[in-house]
Nucleic acid binder design. Structure first.
Length: 818
RNA sequence: GCCCGAGUGGUGGAAUUGGUAGACGCGCGGGACUCAAAAUCCCGUGGGGGCAACCCCGUGAGAGUUCGAUUCUCUCCUCGGGCACCA
């Protein structure tokens, strides 16, 4: 790159950034003492997965936005703790290692080193002495400990569950690795289901609490909405259909008001009652259908626009409301994992049932009609299925004419009398399966013993170290590669001493990341996961800024783990993140950056060319931080010019000289107010704009006068410090300060000085701007209207017409209606 | 299909509770400096009309509420994100 500032006094970002990086390290500028800090403020950012590619612009955008917040709080007098770590376990790292045929344990350290280097260059205020890595046995020892706590509290259970199986990879796939029913890596190979016994965390028990607490959290609304939808609470009733043969089939419905229209029943193919209700002549058909369903992969099984399929069992049940017999069918559009795994089908008022009934020629009976029917609206039979709650019942015996909502309640109560119904709340949230039949994760600390059963590894024996094995590639066995290592899994039972067998699955990466924020402040303690006093002092997290891609899994799991630990008395709080803000996404050419699209932007070259400060500010100036934007580098020179201008101003400082007139002071204080407000709300783009505006004003001041008063320029440097931490250090030193600008205090806003002497009031005639006038603030309406009418431009539009109405917004505008 | 969010100059975006649309940048045009260029500095820059003072139009489209709508309501279009056979 060419030297763009040939004069000797110009600012050299590379030299200055290296100098301050060294000085910060030497002076410990970026560290806060966790023990002695007086005003703790925990500023958290989402820790990265240390990929081989290094940090990309999206990471930088996320981290810088959070760093600016932390630096701002520090200038406001808080002791800000801003830690970072590495989420180094998991399928991403493992797959990459498989691709390049290297052991992940060898790969990760160099990736981490690269990340550390990049993070340091970016000028983050990171407390490096508290960094952590999830693959460190000193860390995952406590991940395993948390598993034991869940087991102890009855929140970890083992149960059978379907997994996606690729016959070509000979391994279990995550749902994301299944593309339209085919393996991501083998596009010609269909994925199917296999059943394995796996460990689950019972997060569903906490559904109501997780939902209720959401209302009290200061979180981005988009994130709260996503969590609410994910929990998916619905109210309805469980109704029991009894077959003439005596089999009771409970179904869940959100519309008990439509029970009179239930003309058939459907069971999921996996439903345990299927065999019992199947007539002997239908055995073959039903068996065939069930096998087909079992073959399908989990993802395409649940695709909604697929053609309905199903098979008749040959038997009937009884509608509890009408007493009529209804046929029992098996169909895969009913899912075993939701509700009771069986539904009453109301084809007139449910799209799926409607489609199914049409295909198989089943009865469609309308029982709800639009409320407007009386006024000539829709009549029975038209526009089915009618699914609105705004209707009235028909063909429903004593409930005819009743509104849907009250009918739902009354019908439930009526059936409750015969014990064929009860009100029921359902959630979509599923229990969290944490078992992974993989290598690169913390082993689940369990030993199976023939005499004692499932035995937890004693806490004193933790960590269960992940052995370094070479054959970590998954195989057709469907179990973890660790299951090939008898020397590892053959261990004595901790209870009876007989030879037992370790659990060979490892845990989900989301477990690693569900508690890392608890660990950061306590990294000095190796005999406990987190120290009680330290946690009480620093937690819950004051500010968490991260991407909405983690709105449901990571953030939900973290809340759940915190809740369990709280209930067991390990934590004083039950919600880990007091405030969460979802930042926007940086896209490139309208698409999310990804390796497969080939549109990933790497920050290194930009930092090398322009310096970290310019790049940081440029990313923040691209668009609103909470919304993100399209990355383009066209405007980056604008930021560089801006910093050069500020640098030039520092050369014009006249200590003791350079008067501060009222106008300059007013602009300063208006800027302080604007920038502080914008920073508090994470509106970084407009804060930068305000700083630019103020800089332009100082420039015109400097151009006309002799020198600038330090009182005008020092606040500018301080306000700029969160954005450009290196540059402002250099400026601060230049204007004569020995300490760090980051130890300065945020300029104090003075309302009195910010107040304007004169205000421009706009005059409108019939809503159109016809004039402007400069007046003293606080004018009365009569005075304002009188002045407005005297304005030449206004006069021409009012002429001799009568002013019918005058609207006056004090200090803003006058609108004359003629 | 359902639930969020967004559509503003050539361009990124601003307008914090309904009150001056286009702040601040980028780009572009003109000028200064220079032998020349780069850098820098100054001026201009939504569209249309007019010699001018000024006037008309303009925030995805259409309607509505209002003295006044980028902002609120309804319908529609487009894009982005999430969920997706959840009964």
């Amino acid at each position: 790159m060419e030297d763009q500032n040939p004069d000797a006094g110009s600012y050299d970002p590379q030299a200055a950034e290296a100098k301050w990086r060294a000085r910060w390290e030497e002076r410990g500028t970026n560290s806060v003492d966790v023990e002695s800090a007086a005003r703790p403020y925990y500023n958290l950012m989402m820790f990265p997965y240390p990929s081989a590619e290094g940090l990309h612009v999206g990471n930088v955008f996320a981290f810088v936005g959070s760093d600016i917040h932390g630096r701002f709080r520090r200038l406001q007098g808080w002791d800000v703790f801003e830690p970072i770590g590495f989420d180094a376990f998991g399928i991403h790292s493992e797959n990459y290692a498989l691709n390049v045929n290297t052991h992940p344990a060898k790969l990760i350290p160099s990736n981490v080193a690269r990340f550390q280097e990049q993070l340091k260059r970016m000028g983050l205020m990171v407390n490096w002495d508290h960094q952590l890595s999830t693959i460190d046995p000193l860390y995952y020892r406590w991940t395993q400990w948390i598993f034991l706590k869940l087991l102890e509290s009855g929140n970890a259970v083992k149960k059978e569950a379907p997994v996606n199986w690729c016959p070509e990879c000979k391994t279990v796939l995550a749902n994301e690795q299944v593309i339209d029913g085919y393996c991501e890596r083998h596009p010609g190979t269909r994925v199917h289901q296999r059943h394995l016994s796996q460990w689950f965390f019972t997060i569903t028990k906490f559904a109501e609490r997780l939902l209720e607490n959401l209302k009290t959290l200061d979180w981005s609304e988009s994130t709260r909405t996503m969590q609410t939808n994910w929990i998916g609470r619905s109210e309805g009733a469980e109704l029991v259909f009894k077959s003439p043969a005596g089999t009771a089939i409970p179904v869940y419905t959100t519309r008990p008001d439509t029970v009179f229209g239930a003309t058939y029943l459907v069971l999921a193919p996996e439903h345990p009652l299927v065999e019992e209700v199947t007539a002997s002549e239908q055995r073959n058909e039903v068996g065939k259908y069930r096998r087909q369903a079992a073959q399908m992969d989990i993802v395409s099984r649940k695709v909604g626009d697929k053609e309905k399929t199903g098979v008749f069992t040959g038997t009937y049940s009884r509608n509890p409301a009408t007493g009529e017999t209804v046929p029992i069918w098996i169909a895969d559009y009913v899912l075993m994992e939701y509700g009771t795994g069986a539904i009453m089908a109301v084809p007139a008022h449910d799209e799926r049932d409607f489609e199914f009934a049409n295909k198989f020629g089943l009865e469609i009976r309308q029982v709800v009609t639009p409320a407007t029917a009386a006024e000539g609206g829709k009549r029975a039979g038209e526009d089915l299925p009618f699914i609105s709650w705004d209707g009235v019942l028909l063909n429903s015996g004593p409930f005819d004419g009743m509104g849907c909502k009250e009918a739902a309640r009354d019908i439930t109560e009526w059936l409750e009398e015969t014990e064929l119904a009860r009100a029921q709340v359902q959630y979509r949230l599923h229990d969290w399966c944490i078992s992974r039949q993989r290598y690169w994760g913390p082993p689940i600390p369990i030993i199976y013993c023939e005499s004692c059963g499932t035995v937890p590894v004693p806490e004193s024996d933790l960590p269960v170290l992940l052995p370094e094995i070479d054959d970590f590639r998954p195989d057709e066995s469907g179990v973890s590669p660790l299951a090939r290592h008898e020397e590892w899994y053959r261990v004595p039972c901790p209870t009876c001493g007989k030879l037992g067998r370790r659990e060979t699955d490892v845990s989900d990466t989301f477990l690693d990341s569900s508690w890392y924020y608890l660990r950061y402040p306590s990294t000095d303690f190796n005999d406990r996961a987190f120290d009680k006093d330290v946690s009480a002092k620093w937690l819950p997290v004051d500010s968490y800024i991260g991407g909405n891609e983690h709105a449901v899994l990571h953030l939900m799991y973290s809340r759940f783990i915190t809740m369990v630990l709280h209930d067991m008395g390990h934590l004083e709080f039950e919600e880990p993140f007091a405030r969460f803000r979802a930042h926007g996404t940086i896209v490139k050419d309208g698409a999310k950056m990804s390796k497969s699209r080939g549109n990933v932007v790497v920050p290194d070259d930009y930092i090398a060319q322009w310096g970290a400060d310019t790049f940081r500010m440029y990313l923040m100036f691209l668009g609103p931080y909470l919304e993100g934007g399209d990355f383009r580098d066209e405007g980056i020179a604008g930021i560089s010019r801006f910093l050069d201008k500020v640098w030039a101003l520092t050369q014009r400082v006249a200590p003791g000289g350079g008067a501060v007139d009222r106008g300059a002071a007013r602009k300063l204080h208006q800027t302080i107010k604007k920038v502080a407000g914008d920073l508090a709300g994470l509106h970084y783009n407009t804060a930068i704009s305000a700083l630019m505006k103020y800089t332009n004003e100082l420039r015109s001041l400097a151009a006309s006068g002799s020198g600038l008063a330090p009182e005008l320029i020092e606040p500018l440097i301080v306000m700029l410090a969160p954005f450009a931490p290196y540059f402002t250090e250099e400026c601060w030193e230049k204007i004569g300060h020995a300490g760090s600008v980051h130890d300065a205090t945020w300029p104090k806003f003075d309302e009195e000085l910010a107040r304007a002497d004169e205000i421009e009031v706009v005059v409108q005639v019939n809503g159109k701007v016809r004039g402007r006038m400069l007046v003293a603030p606080g004018l009365s309406q009569d005075e304002a209207v009188e002045l407005a009418l005297a304005d030449e431009g206004v006069k021409r539009f009012v002429e001799d017409k009568k002013v019918r109405k005058a609207i006056y917004v004090p200090d803003r505008l006058v609108n004359l209606v003629v």
